[in-house]
Amino acid sequence: MKDGGTQQAEKTGRRTGLILLLLGTALTAAGLLQGQYASVLAKAIRICMECVGIG
């Protein structure tokens, strides 16, 4: 069993997590609408010279 304060903190944490999950979904959707998927794809299908320690 948990005391009232811990229970409340647990509920608040869970609620915040849910709100952040929705926020993340909304941001992802906004990015998709702006065509940012294509920008990520364009970068990901070419060898990133900095990443592999060349550029």
């Binding site: 952040l20 941001l27 702006q34 940012q36 920008s39 990520v40």
Partner: peptide, 24 residues
Amino acid sequence: SFLGARPFRLPYYVVGLLVFFGAL
């Protein structure tokens, strides 16, 4: 890549996915 691009664009898509994975 987004943060270093010019003109600068807010990286909604990548940030959104990171927040989604983090919150889940």
